[in-house]
Design a protein around this nucleic acid. Sequence first.
DNA 1: CAGTATATAAGATCGAGTCTCGTTATTGTT
DNA 2: AACAATAACGAGACTCGATCTTATATACTG
Lengths: 165, 165
Amino acid sequence: MSPTARTVPTTSTTACAGRRAAGGRDWLERAEEALTAAGRRRGEARRAVLELLNNQACALTAIEIEDALRTQRRVSRASVYRILEELEELGLVQRVETGQAMVRYERVADQHEHHHHLVCGGCGVVMPFSDEGLERAISSLSERVPLTVSEHEIVLRGECRDCAA
Amino acid sequence: MSPTARTVPTTSTTACAGRRAAGGRDWLERAEEALTAAGRRRGEARRAVLELLNNQACALTAIEIEDALRTQRRVSRASVYRILEELEELGLVQRVETGQAMVRYERVADQHEHHHHLVCGGCGVVMPFSDEGLERAISSLSERVPLTVSEHEIVLRGECRDCAA
DNA sequence: CAGTATATAAGATCGAGTCTCGTTATTGTT
DNA sequence: AACAATAACGAGACTCGATCTTATATACTG
Ligand SMILES: [Zn+2]
Ligand SMILES: [Zn+2]
Ligand SMILES: [Zn+2]
Ligand SMILES: [Zn+2]
């Protein structure tokens, strides 16, 4: 019913998170370590959120996270948002602004996972992509701009193949 | 008080809307024509919104538009949103997602005005920029992606000079 | 100058996101 | 193992940008 991010292989020029949806162990470990290092205790709600995020190819909304967890372990909305904010501060999760109503969140890429997003205006599907040339253009540009650039976000909008057909 | 977009000259490599804030006549004319062609009547509320948008260097939020118009001609919030939606459908205005809470709107650039945005995480200021290399990278990439790309949006985040000081 | 359809204003309503606060769980200490 | 300290959590109230509803005003047509 509601448009959600799904796992779609990209035609991009470099590796992308989309490739290894339910798999990557390292992020989960890295996250747990970072949290311990930051002096945090281990709660079950956060553990559930971490596990869910680790199994996603791309970004989810807070509501999608709440719904997804409802079946196995009820996590309150406030906790979802608080946990996402904590993880964002620690650089483990990033917000994704797709131009749809809600903000999305995804685990932060190690170098090889860094990607951006395609959004279909028809069905709302969100797909990851990555491109070396684009990244080079961005980082070169970042030097010539009146701002100390720390992040960048790119969204391509259009119509996916299913909707175009 | 609240972070608003202000006119800031860019150091970019091409012309940008920021350069000719209160000036460009053609967009206003083009907009009026397009509206007439679409069979719309001429209301005062929309006229006020069009005039305001035409005098902006960069994107405003709906609330900023409502506030700006309050002094001269009260335009209701519903009208602001309805008018912006109409203009967006006609391709005269585009939404800008800066990753802040509210969506921003700006008049759609003719070719030479096309630009993207820098957002300061400190004070929330929004600045336009444009770059030829980046646009080339985007359009080349758009050919190799599983989506018929019709628009793109780029946001660079960081700290502006005032906030860094 | 009616008559008709669009445009607008005002306010109710919606919902994603935030905040408060009382309860529960984790961890370090005795 | 019992305890205290404090972080993590849940439930629900609340905020406010955005949308919807409806009555009124205004712009076009003949
Ligand atoms: Zn993604
Ligand atoms: Zn990138
Ligand atoms: Zn702009
Ligand atoms: Zn562009």
